[in-house]
């Protein structure tokens, strides 16, 4: 009788999925293994996160850039499609590139992988502290933003970008730092 695929709800991974990544069962993702490629992926995701955050300032930005009403819709739509592809696709590839080690529970990892995962969380925690400080400075000195308002700058994009950065930071640290993963 086949063993059930255990779901780790808290970590957001499955036993089979994580084991498949740890054991290289799908060779089509081997191009993600070199550190250089993982770092390119991290940079691409950061560009996506920054573009999502800039969505909060789109009304101010389009006024400053003096875009006509037709052009601004095109720029916004193209950028939105690019950002969705980079952020959603990039996040999936990021988890694959680090074999889901940043999200996996102890019982699926060996002692070195647990140590590497825990170190990545420590660095991610420091980095998120700096991001929170940067956000506070932006709120204090940047253009005014409000939440859920039909007109003006909408701060919800900033919130989405921050949440996404929180979710992906340990994997990004892991992808950036580790020589072999």
């Amino acid at each position: 009788m086949p063993k059930n695929n255990k779901i780790y709800w808290f970590e957001g991974v499955t036993e089979k999925g994580t084991k498949a990544l740890l054991n290289d069962e799908n060779p089509k993702f081997n191009w993600l293994r070199p550190q250089r490629n993982r770092r390119i992926l991290v940079v691409a995701i950061w560009i996506g996160i920054i573009l999502v955050a800039m969505g909060s300032y789109w009304p101010t930005l389009k006024t400053n850039l003096s875009l006509s009403s037709g052009v601004d819709v095109i720029v916004y739509s193209v950028t939105a499609i690019f950002v969705i592809l980079v952020v959603v696709g990039g996040y999936s590839l990021l988890r694959v590139s680090v074999r889901s080690i940043a999200d996996a529970p102890d019982e699926l990892l060996d002692e070195r992988q647990i140590q590497v995962r825990d170190t990545s969380f420590r660095y991610a925690y420091y980095l998120m502290g700096y991001i929170v400080i940067a956000l506070m400075l932006l709120m204090l000195f940047g253009p005014e933003v409000q939440m859920f308002q039909p007109e003006g700058n909408d701060g919800s994009y900033l919130v989405i970008a921050t949440l996404f950065a929180f979710a992906s930071m340990p994997s990004m640290v892991l992808a950036w730092r580790e020589k072999d993963i």
Binding site: L22, L109, D110, E111, R112, Q113, D180, I181
Partner: peptide, 22 residues
């Protein structure tokens, strides 16, 4: 030994020091 093959590589290159159990 119950570890990932990359961990054996790290051990052989002496880039990782194992626990007593390992």
């Amino acid at each position: 030994a119950g570890v990932h093959y990359q961990t054996i590589g790290y051990l052989e290159r002496e880039e990782y020091s194992p626990s007593l159990v390992l």
